[in-house]
Amino acid sequence: MANKLRILIADDHQLVIQGILCSLKEVGDFDVVTTNNCDTAFQLIKTSEKTTPFQILFTDLSFDNTTEDTKLDGGEELIKAIRNNEIDIKIGVITGHTETNRVYNVISNLNPNAYLLKSKCDAKEIGFAIQKMLASDFYYTHEIHQKIMRRNIVQIQMDDVAIQVLKELPNHAKIGNLEGVIKKNDGTVIKLRSIETKLANLRINLNANNNTDLILKAKELGIID
């Protein structure tokens, strides 16, 4: 008889854990362990690595129950610790965080095998994610996939001048005030007409109605803070 798949769940909300457990029961017969903090999660992974290793970790990103003694204060730190120790485990994020910049940074820097949203993490979704993870593939829930695709497309279209324009625009009452502020890498000042053209192209690329809308969408995509 084959050994059961071992899954560790790390989340500081018991209701969320219960929801994930219910979904997992619909998917299959797994050996599931739960914890409400990242320090314990890491210790469980480390101590069982040589004997009864976990194949999958599902973790939230934010934990509200941290203290002064907490070493790993969130899912990002937990994933980093696992990566730094070269532990062989598939990592899935189950979270409520949908901010494009945070999503993009987590996926780009930490490379989790899956990124799911708590609000849409039913048995079908988590089951499909597990299949992908075990096949050494990646699965991002549809909303997250769309955000990453859009961010990647926008990122390709961005250049240093575009970033300068987006960052400086909220600081000036008139577009004309940007002339002399926006410069090329070699220090050459960008003329007003070129700035206006850049803004027009940015509005098209980000599907913005006006410059105010442009800044909001740039922030939503995490292009500027």
Rank of each mutant, 00 (worst) to 15 (best):
N3T: 05
K4T: 01
L5R: 01
I7L: 03
I9S: 06
H13F: 06
L15Q: 08
I17S: 00
I17L: 09
Q18C: 01
G19W: 01
G19A: 08
G19T: 08
L21N: 12
C22D: 13
L24F: 04
K25Q: 11
E26W: 03
G28E: 05
D29A: 13
F30R: 01
F30S: 02
F30M: 04
V32F: 06
V32L: 05
T34H: 06
N36V: 14
N37R: 10
D39H: 09
T40I: 12
A41Q: 03
L44D: 05
T47M: 06
K50A: 15
F54S: 00
Q55Y: 00
I56R: 02
L57T: 06
D60C: 04
F63N: 04
F63P: 01
F63Q: 05
D64K: 11
N65P: 06
T67N: 09
D69N: 10
D69M: 04
A81Q: 12
A81C: 07
R83P: 03
E86A: 06
E86K: 08
E86D: 10
E86C: 01
D88Q: 07
I89G: 03
K90C: 03
K90H: 09
T95G: 01
G96R: 03
E99K: 15
E99Q: 14
N101H: 05
R102F: 05
V103Y: 05
V103F: 05
S108T: 13
N109Y: 08
P112D: 05
P112L: 06
A114L: 04
L117W: 02
L117E: 05
K118F: 10
S119K: 13
A123Q: 03
I126W: 03
G127A: 06
G127V: 04
K132W: 00
D137G: 07
T141K: 01
K147F: 02
I148K: 00
I148P: 01
R150M: 11
R151K: 15
I153P: 00
V154S: 07
I156F: 12
D160K: 14
V161W: 02
I163M: 13
Q164A: 13
L166N: 11
L166W: 11
K167G: 08
K167L: 13
E168C: 12
H172R: 14
H172V: 14
E179T: 15
V181T: 15
K183Y: 07
N185A: 14
N185Y: 10
T188M: 13
I190S: 10
I190K: 13
K191F: 08
R193S: 15
R193L: 10
S194Q: 15
I195Q: 13
T197P: 01
N201Q: 15
R203Q: 15
I204C: 00
N207G: 03
N209Y: 13
N209L: 14
N210L: 03
T212E: 14
T212W: 00
D213I: 08
L216R: 10
A218S: 07
K219E: 11
K219M: 09
E220K: 08
L221Y: 02
L221E: 06
G222S: 03
I223W: 01
I224P: 05
D225N: 14
D225A: 10
